[in-house]
Design a binder for these strands. Structure first.
Lengths: 235, 235
DNA sequence: ACTTACTGAATGAATGTTCAACAAATGATG
DNA sequence: CATCATTTGTTGAACATTCATTCAGTAAGT
């Protein structure tokens, strides 16, 4: 009605699966697509809305419009707004989790490389961009008063923290440092989150590059034997 | 205008300031109180509501109830909900700003002492408590999509950051360190914000004491000549 | 008497949810 | 293969609720 209706077959559905966030305004409002595709599509539209308007201004209508679908659609695929938001948070959590686990695996067995890989992973474009950071922050703002969000909202959860502590302990032993691993791991992970917050706020003095630079500087002063200080960056 | 609200000093105002969250159902709903007292009272009730229910669930009715006043009261003292929230954020900003400026002034002329004082100030009970942190985070979650909040929402603003950079530069010179002051200042201030975020989330592994400990550990590894590593202590 | 602070019911706008109707895919049947 | 039946996905209007705002009225202070 709003747009011309075109027949959409399985080929198009597959295409939509590969490009779920596309703005394609032509075929989307068509007919069928697999349940998973539609849900993904709605979740992406939710992230968009969160990033654009913030948590409190994100409405079902805006999500539906953003996906190019009708108003009632969200309640069909997700039971309620609340459940849509939980699913969205879960999706972001899964994505983030998979990302750092993958980075860790590719880093080999050397603890110093592993820690560096984790730090770098945090500032990867696929994870660390305005849209996603804004969505994360929208959830953070509500997490304290919503038990359901709390568990998922700290992207860097207990497992992540444990790995950080273990890595710090390894480096301490091999480098002969004096600090307490738990304390250093807390300082490090807190700094990473703080840099995210800075990036999200969008003060122009902090970019993804300078944030990564600051994180590396931290590694250099905390673990000088493993990350010798020199110019790792360019202007 | 908004600043004058937070800067009032009648006897009644001070009394209300000391016991802002009081439930007193007897005298409050009574009749008169100075305009400033009422506004302060409503701002405190707003912080309560933000901390208890989060930004999106904070309603005018809840604020009015929390203050023990009638429904229409907020629109009388503040023109709208939006303006109430801006005034609340401004109030928190002023308070935070005054706090670290005061700490800086008391620290004397030694840069090392000044930096340490700023770090400690961040974890002072009067500033760093569940209620206030939750309110900060509520605003952070909305800041990106609200220009009005953006300027005020980064409690540690441009001035603060400049002071950090200058202090890092001073310490670099007197200690002969190799880092770039800007980068180190960013790492440090980001870590402080990240620790706040942790505290706010309320994961039980992070307390005000362990957060301060982590911050001091950072100072020790970044500026070893100025903060020799040993028992990190509290004020 | 006059001003100022305050009340609380009324109002209207915004928004999440429901649902009856509809359309597309799939399956069944001859 | 054509036709009908059933299931599944989708729509959009109607509904109910929540909530910010308004305002006429009231009471306290001066």
């Amino acid at each position: 009605m709003l747009e011309t209706v075109t027949r959409m077959k399985t080929a198009n559905a597959r295409e939509a699966l590969l490009e779920p966030a596309r703005k394609a305004d032509s075929e989307k409002r068509g007919r069928k697509a697999s349940k998973e595709v539609r849900q993904l599509q709605l979740i992406e539209a939710t992230i968009d809305s969160l990033a654009r308007r913030g948590y409190s201004e994100t409405t079902m209508a805006d999500v539906a419009d953003g996906a190019g679908l009708s108003r009632g659609i969200v309640n069909f695929h997700f039971e309620s707004k609340e459940k849509l938001l939980v699913a969205t948070l879960q999706h972001m959590y899964d994505e983030y989790s998979a990302h750092w686990r993958n980075a860790l695996q590719r880093a080999g067995d050397e603890p110093a490389n592993q820690l560096h890989a984790l730090v770098c992973a945090d500032f990867d474009r696929s994870i660390c961009n305005k849209r996603k950071l804004a969505a994360w922050c929208a959830f953070w703002g509500e997490a304290k008063s919503r038990p359901t969000y709390q568990a998922l909202s700290s992207a860097r959860d207990a497992v992540y923290q444990t790995i950080f502590i273990d890595l710090c302990a390894s480096l301490k032993q091999s480098g002969g440092y004096a600090y307490e691993p738990q304390v250093m791991a807390l300082a490090l992970s807190a700094m990473l989150e703080g840099l995210w917050l800075r990036l999200m706020m969008g003060t122009e003095d902090t970019t993804r590059e300078t944030a990564l630079q600051a994180a590396n500087e931290f590694l250099s002063v905390a673990f000088p034997k493993h990350y010798p200080l020199k110019a790792a960056v360019k202007p």
